[in-house]
């Protein structure tokens, strides 16, 4: 029964609440730029408008292009059901699920990349090339960070490593967890295509990574992509927030978790307003730095 309630709660957060994070980021950035900014609920209106539209497809594309957004969204949604939201047992979590979590993220990326290549556009090919490059560099950090957490908790499930034992783990191996949190933070920014790795606002520029891959999508397909981006923000954010804010108890834990997500969104907005995007040449160094942070975390845990 509890598991069913969590399932409903988590589905609601993923499906309904996640676009709000995009709205908070946009509002924060607008405030920093001295503008009023769009309403907080603007992403919802965008989604509804896109879902109500028809679609335009390139003559070059095939079923692969049409399947990309759906596969990507389905994978992210499934991955979201493996992550514990603020100390609750994840509705579909099991021992070993963190390896599946990594796999599902890879599936979502692979589908997006192939859909981009299907258009035959040089811009989208460029975006796809950069996406796989940075993903290959970010993946070791993600794996090592999860390993440090798993070693601390002695579990192989996300619910286990982000569960009640986290408070104890901070007391015992605080520095390691801090390093891991920093590494995961960089992963979070990379995977969600945020500053300083990617610039989600500069449309039609050569500098983008993720946005450029979805140039040709329109209508409901683009709505799926937008919703997927929001979901990914929430799913990876959930891991990060829970790691940094491990509060015990259901009401207090959920309050801390939801507040943490809002704070994270605001922080992303602040970061995007304050930072410029790194030059492409420096992004690998940035990602290697993240891997090194996580590796130091391992060293501390091993001692």
């Amino acid at each position: 029964m509890i598991l069913f309630l969590t399932l409903v709660y988590q589905c609601a957060l993923l499906l309904v609440v996640s676009p709000l994070l995009l709205g908070i980021i946009a509002r924060t950035k607008a405030r920093f730029a001295g503008r009023v900014g769009p309403p907080l609920l603007q992403p919802y209106w965008d989604l509804l408008r896109l879902l109500g539209k028809g679609a335009v497809y390139s003559r070059t594309t095939t079923w692969l292009f049409r399947a990309g957004p759906m596969v990507s969204l389905a994978a992210l949604f499934t991955a979201g059901l493996l992550v514990p939201f603020g100390g609750l047992q994840a509705p579909l979590g099991f021992s070993g699920d963190l390896l599946l979590f990594i796999g599902l993220l890879a599936l979502s990326r692979f589908a997006t990349v192939l859909a981009a290549l299907d258009t035959g556009s040089s811009f989208e090919g460029m975006g796809a090339s950069r996406e796989v490059t940075f993903a290959a560099l970010a993946e070791p950090t993600l794996a090592v960070s999860l390993l440090v957490l798993a070693k601390g908790a002695g579990h192989l499930s996300l619910s286990g490593i982000l569960g009640a034992s986290l408070v104890q783990a901070w007391a015992e191996a605080g520095p390691a967890l801090a390093l891991v949190a920093a590494g995961l933070g960089i992963c979070f920014l990379t995977e969600n295509c945020r500053m300083p790795v990617d610039d989600p606002t500069t449309h039609l520029e050569l500098t983008m990574i993720h946005e450029v891959m979805v140039l040709d999508h329109s209508g409901p397909d683009f709505a799926f992509i937008l919703h997927g981006a929001a979901m990914k923000l929430m799913v990876l954010g959930a891991v990060l927030v829970r790691l940094v804010l491990p509060v015990e108890g259901v009401p207090a834990g959920q309050a801390a978790f939801l507040t943490g997500l809002v704070v994270l969104a605001v922080a992303v907005g602040v970061l995007e307003s304050a930072l410029a995007r790194l030059r492409l040449l420096f992004i690998p160094q940035f990602l290697v730095a993240a891997a090194v942070l996580a590796a130091f975390g391992v060293v501390i845990v091993l001692r």
């Binding site: 539209k53 028809g54 679609a55 335009v56 497809y57 390139s58 003559r59 070059t60 594309t61 258009t119 035959g120 556009s121 811009f123 039609l204 140039l215 040709d216 209508g219």
Partner: peptide
């Protein structure tokens, strides 16, 4: 709905 075919968007 209106589902059309066109060329790949070449950014202008």
């Amino acid at each position: 709905r209106d589902v059309r075919e066109a060329g790949t968007w070449g950014c202008g």
